[in-house]
Design a protein around this nucleic acid. Sequence first.
DNA 1: CCTGCTTTCGAAATATTTCGGACCCGTTCA
DNA 2: TGAACGGGTCCGAAATATTTCGAAAGCAGG
Lengths: 357, 357
Amino acid sequence: MDRLSRPSKLTLAAVAAEVGVSAPTVSKVVNGREDVAEATRARVLAALQRTGYKSPLQRKSIPEHRAVEVVFDSLNSAYGVEVLNGVMEHAAVSEMEVILSITGRQAASPLGPEERAQRMIDEGRAGMIVVTSAFGSAQLEAFKRRQIPIVVVDPLNPPPADVFSVGASNWAGGKAAASHLLELGHRKIAYMGGPSTAECSQARLHGYMAALMAGGVTVEDEYISSGPFKPENGVRAMKALLALDDPPTAIFAGSDSIALGVLAEARRQDVRIPEEMSLVGFDGTHQAEESVPPLTSVSQPLQEMGRSALSFILRQKNGEEIDSRRVELATHLVVRESTAPPRASTPLGESPPSRAE
Amino acid sequence: MDRLSRPSKLTLAAVAAEVGVSAPTVSKVVNGREDVAEATRARVLAALQRTGYKSPLQRKSIPEHRAVEVVFDSLNSAYGVEVLNGVMEHAAVSEMEVILSITGRQAASPLGPEERAQRMIDEGRAGMIVVTSAFGSAQLEAFKRRQIPIVVVDPLNPPPADVFSVGASNWAGGKAAASHLLELGHRKIAYMGGPSTAECSQARLHGYMAALMAGGVTVEDEYISSGPFKPENGVRAMKALLALDDPPTAIFAGSDSIALGVLAEARRQDVRIPEEMSLVGFDGTHQAEESVPPLTSVSQPLQEMGRSALSFILRQKNGEEIDSRRVELATHLVVRESTAPPRASTPLGESPPSRAE
DNA sequence: CCTGCTTTCGAAATATTTCGGACCCGTTCA
DNA sequence: TGAACGGGTCCGAAATATTTCGAAAGCAGG
């Protein structure tokens, strides 16, 4: 029948013939239906790519995609708000709208993975930025099938290899914090981590340990604790540390909010910071600047991370070639007033560097 | 041909036959295409109504108006974040989506009032919640003409009479704060307001003055200052107060963030709180709980305000009768550890009440 | 080897889009 | 005046796309 099989019209049927499947099957792939085997889907996808076929629906919805959805666990942390600020900033310059969404607030109709992904398409969303752990692989899968751009920010759990993610150099940050304390002359340095299962906590811990070992200090198990990223955790851990026979002279807290708890408990027990105890936080949120005393903290470029995440989405959307699926932005130590040399013993050897600027 | 014309399957073709047009024509009407004569469209529409036919697309698609837009000045204040949390909470239960938008981040194309309003319609938005001052009357006008529900939360400027607004009982809050300090025995009580032009600052100030006058204390001008709702303002004002010949023994700050600045400056100058200086904040954000010492603060039901705002939108959307255009939610004083009786002079007359619970 | 279940696929039914032609109307020109 | 022309609107045949639904194939568990 079709004399000129190849160059004619570029229709669904043509693509189907090329791959050797039926038209409905190609249609299903184009529209992200589920009942297509992975292998078949891949072949069709390839042909689609080659021929550049677009469904009429795709053809007409040219401008769309002016919105991204951002999903948070909760907005109770300064961390999340900062990331959101970064996203908003980039959204403003790139003229995107931002749909905010909070997990844990699951509503009347919890909306399965498939519906949720389909909805993204229906509403013409450019993609999704996830700042939470609670995003199952089923959901990621549904997105991938529909080729919806998705970016995970600083995932608590390591993300699947083929998902884009944005994070910070937690290991380097942990090392910087501990090194700073070592340089001030501290030898007894505690670490209060976040959830021990979280990727980022672990990286910070290992950075801390690396610095200690490099400085010839043994890592004491009883100086290391973990718990949620909340002030109460700082309070609890601080109590435990102060109850020790040989309490540390410095603390590296895994987040500013934990450090805030430490600060509160220190005041209650009349432990002066930084004179009697040095304290380093992590995140570099406004909390760190406004606390009493202002907190030395490892600053994460949270806004930058938000910006990057959106930029990632936009580049995926525009079909740009993306070299790396993972971006890791640099953390840096901001020295404020919560760290000082330890009181009793001046460090041996060379004199300690004076307060950095 | 079709023996049983009516009761069979309810397909597009059936409807077309009923009206006496072709299937494509019905399809066009269903999908809102333009190339159908008005008369024809009406006849088809009637048949559609009669038969109850729905296109597969309509069958699965969601009902419109599932999104509200929320506009903030910035997200740098805990205040805004709390309100947003309230909105998100209500959004979850009412299955609405939230589009977040920040003014001051004006983008490449600033989008005039009319376009902006029109866009709300085009995108099927249910309404808008404004948590900012920067929303001109031209913009409000454009919304009103199109009958787009809009709610202003705690407007800095008094809103036009015919715009819905949600606020808190600032006057009562100011009075409660000052009364609390009076009851503790303070007589020299300073007020650090927010922007003097802001409605809410003024209300708090007047509440404070009312309490003072009721307590027979004269209002000292030099104890009253104003400025932005930021820690730096608290620092500045605190410096000024401490430089006074006769500094106050208590401070009522117009917001928790201002109070945080006061706290920082107090520590720097070794003024102990609450022993040497009592301090009351306003807002009741998390900052107040986590500060050192925890802040006595006039708590605003910020989340509740957010919830109310959205609920207002929803009720307008559903055409419910709305009795009042203004809702004012109650503030209440939360006593924590930053207030105590003044050191030097025990109050005359009756003994001061012990620390409230 | 059956049985019941699931997965995957495509034929047929259904829906939508494209595109050309009919029709109407005003304008131009013989 | 009326035929010829141009441009617009509206419709439907045919082309194209999507959905439904059942059949085939694979896969436990008897």
